[in-house]
Simulated assay, not measured.
Amino acid sequence: MAVPKKKTSKSKRDMRRAHDALSAPGLSVCPQCKEPKQPHRVCPSCGTYKGREILPAEEL
């Protein structure tokens, strides 16, 4: 079984982990209801996408 020959320093460990942070999802504004929504997805508040009603109002 492979075993490290030397202890990994805190600096090397933290530099490796520097790219592991999560980023917040991008948000855009719905042109119909002006609520924030994820781009290229149906608006969860009004149910429209590209100016067309996808989800009926009673499902929301």
Results as ranks from 00 to 15, higher is better:
Glu58Tyr: 07
Arg16Met: 07
Arg17Ser: 13
Lys12Ile: 05
Ser28Gln: 13
Gln32Asp: 15
Gly47Met: 01
Ile54Cys: 06
Leu55His: 08
Arg17Thr: 08
Ala18Val: 08
Ala2Val: 01
Gln32Val: 08
Lys34Asp: 09
Pro56Leu: 01
Leu22Trp: 12
Leu27Phe: 04
Glu35Cys: 09
Ser11Tyr: 11
Met1Ser: 14
Pro31Asp: 14
Lys12Glu: 12
Ser45Cys: 13
His19Gly: 12
Ser28Trp: 04
Val3His: 15
Lys12His: 07
Asp20Glu: 13
Gly51Lys: 00
Lys10Pro: 01
Ala57Gln: 15
Lys7Gly: 15
Pro36Phe: 05
Met1Gly: 15
Pro39Leu: 02
Lys12Gln: 10
Lys7Gln: 12
Met15Lys: 13
Cys46Arg: 00
Lys10Phe: 05
Ser45Phe: 14
Pro39Lys: 00
Pro56Ile: 01
Pro4His: 00
Lys50Glu: 14
Lys50Met: 07
Ser45His: 15
Ala24Ser: 14
Gln38Ala: 07
Met15Trp: 11
Glu59His: 05
Lys7Ile: 03
Gln38Ile: 06
Val29Lys: 06
Val42Gln: 14
His40Trp: 13
Glu59Leu: 05
Pro31Thr: 06
Ala2Phe: 01
Pro36Lys: 00
Leu27Met: 09
Leu22Thr: 11
Leu22Cys: 10
Pro36Ala: 03
Ser11Leu: 09
Thr8His: 08
Pro25Asp: 09
Leu27His: 11
Ser23Phe: 06
Ile54Phe: 04
Lys37His: 09
Gln38Pro: 01
Leu60Arg: 03
Lys6Glu: 14
Asp20Ser: 07
Glu58Trp: 06
Asp20Phe: 09
Met15Ala: 08
Pro44Arg: 09
Leu22Ile: 09
Thr48Asp: 07
Arg52Glu: 15
Ala24Trp: 11
Cys43Gln: 06
Thr8Phe: 06
